[in-house]
């Protein structure tokens, strides 16, 4: 697969994972919404960093994303460890 596009396997894993989180937090939609917000903030900041050609110190790091998701998924270790498999520097 070209390095610039997610492979079908990566895409399928992401679909299954989002579906799993959505179902796990059916009774707590605010947790699911917070998860989406973290991802969108991360993506937006990644784009901002690209546009500003990697301004040092800007953007949310993978560590920050992981720790935000960890505090959101407290007690859901399986979800957290699966999330770590998506992070580039986990």
């Amino acid at each position: 697969c070209p390095a610039s596009d997610p492979s079908p396997v990566e895409f399928d894993s992401a679909i299954s994972y989002v579906n799993k989180i959505k179902n796990r937090f059916l009774d707590h939609p605010e947790i699911y919404r917070s998860f989406l917000e973290i991802l969108h903030t991360y993506q937006k900041e990644q784009l901002d960093v690209k546009e500003s050609r990697g301004r040092p110190g800007s953007g949310m790091t993978e560590d920050e994303v992981f720790s935000k998701v960890a505090s959101l998924f407290k007690g859901q270790e399986d979800l957290l460890s699966e999330f770590g498999q998506f992070l580039p520097d986990a």
Partner: peptide, 27 residues
């Protein structure tokens, strides 16, 4: 089948892009 909203789909996009970056950084 999944009942995904546009927000869900964009989360899928972000996650799969992260996985792609991870693959690129490991290769």
């Amino acid at each position: 089948s999944y009942d995904f909203t546009p927000l869900d789909s964009s989360a899928v996009y972000v996650l799969s892009s992260m996985a792609r970056q991870r693959r690129a950084s490991l290769s």
